[in-house]
């Protein structure tokens, strides 16, 4: 499933990386501990977190994530957005908490089409 489909379905706000929303999402990982995400997520995943500082871009870029979704309407910092644009990592914002957002995305990704 492409990121743009998840954005449309869950009414996510796109903060940056608008040109890279056709990336394919192969799975997801939810976490705020960067080493946990580093160790356990995979390439192509969408990363759900409440961390907003620029180090999330380095993690997502090194792990080749499809994109990052911030929960609870958390806003990325200016440095985070600039870095994400440069690294071609889309960042979206959801008003939902992590549990609900993860559940919805899990259902989308596992639904039989």
């Amino acid at each position: 499933m492409k990121i743009e489909k998840i954005i449309q379905t869950l009414e996510l706000e796109v903060k940056c990386g608008k040109d890279y929303l056709d990336k394919e999402v192969t799975g997801g990982y939810t976490g705020d501990l960067l080493s946990d995400v580093m160790g356990n997520s995979r390439e192509g995943y969408i990363w759900i977190t409440r961390q907003v500082h620029q180090n999330i871009v380095a993690v997502a870029s090194l792990k080749e994530h499809a994109g990052i979704i911030l929960i609870n309407s958390c806003q990325p910092t200016q440095e985070t957005m600039e870095k994400a644009e440069a690294e071609k990592i889309p960042i979206m914002v959801s008003s939902l908490p992590a549990f609900e957002l993860s559940g919805k995305i899990y259902n989308l990704l596992t639904a039989k089409s």
Binding site: L33, L34, S35, D36, G39, T49, Q51, N55
Partner: peptide
């Protein structure tokens, strides 16, 4: 607070 310091860094290094 930044999400570092979970005590997993050296474990990740060893595992990978």
């Amino acid at each position: 607070e930044m999400g570092f310091g979970a005590g997993m860094g050296l474990c990740n290094i060893k595992n990978y």
